[in-house]
Nucleic acid binder design. Structure first.
Length: 262
DNA sequence: CTAGATGTTAAGGT
DNA sequence: CACCTTAACATCTA
């Protein structure tokens, strides 16, 4: 799930459930997902403090616990958040549990363990160190054209590269390219001003609409690719069978009839 | 049993 | 040198 729209949902969920309550305990059930912090340091840093606000950048969620202390959550392929009261309700792959004074808990669940949890003092410094690009929803047209104009390789690979723009993942990259009827293997350096502008508008449109749909595929228009993505899927526009190809190390789904290389 | 799944990155190649 | 591509990571399901 966790691409930009999904992480935005996690942000709103955390905001609605877990702010301003004293953290009584941090229960690390699996330390594999901890990055640059030990279970002891995580607990020591957060116990007695409260989550005060959140900030999202691409697929990263930062939660402020103090003036100089932020919790960093990255959801990998299967990460999610769950707020609940009874320990028996803890999700199956709970890796870290934040226990609040009201005895409710916030679980970081992650089956595949590609997720990450860390502590840091300065979010901007972290983004810089990771060389992460501008957030796909924050970037403006001029910057978008400037940054993509210099790139080469398949346009889908560029959309997936978090150092170019951050937040777009495999599913939504396909969706954006379907919307602009562009073949995912289109050579980026061949894109002109007009094509880049179209791509920019589609990126914003898809990200915003996906958030409006609560990142829930069932709430997205049937005219989108997402509900049809997969083996026997048919193009919602022309009805032909969808194609797949390996691009940028991931499976791209697209309509070979509607999406031509530019 | 094998392949592939919403992500990132180290390592190798251009 | 900057950038691109690929393999590997851990786990579960079709």
């Amino acid at each position: 799930m966790p691409e930009l729209p999904d992480v935005e949902m996690f942000k709103r969920y955390l905001d609605a459930t877990s702010l301003h309550q004293r953290i009584d305990d941090v229960d690390v059930r699996n330390a594999y997902i901890l990055k640059n912090v030990t279970a002891r340091e995580l607990a020591r840093g957060l116990k007695g403090r409260r989550f005060e606000s959140t900030r999202r950048h691409g697929k990263h969620l930062f939660v402020r616990a103090d003036r100089k202390l932020w919790l960093r959550l990255h959801f990998g392929m299967t990460g999610s958040l769950e707020y609940f009261k009874d320990d028996r309700q803890a999700p199956r792959h709970t890796r870290v549990l934040f226990v609040f004074a009201n005895n409710h808990r916030l679980a970081f669940d992650d089956q595949r363990q590609f997720g990450q949890i860390g502590l840091l003092e300065d979010v901007d410094e972290f983004l810089k160190k990771r060389a992460l690009g501008a957030d796909a929803l924050d970037i403006d047209l001029e910057e978008f054209k400037k940054i993509l104009g210099k790139r080469r390789g398949a346009v889908k690979s560029i959309l997936l590269n978090q150092r170019v723009i951050t937040g777009i993942g495999n599913i939504y990259a396909d969706e954006i390219l379907f919307r602009v009827r562009m073949h995912p293997a289109t050579e980026t350096s061949r894109l002109g001003d007009k094509a880049l502008t179209k791509l920019f508008r589609a990126t914003h449109y898809i990200m915003e609409k996906a958030i409006t749909a609560k990142a829930d595929a069932d709430r997205m228009p049937k005219s989108w690719l997402l509900p049809h993505r997969g083996k026997d899927g048919k193009c919602p526009r022309c009805g032909r069978k969808l194609s797949s190809a390996r691009i940028g190390g991931r499976t791209a789904w697209f309509c070979a009839h509607c999406q031509k290389k530019m």
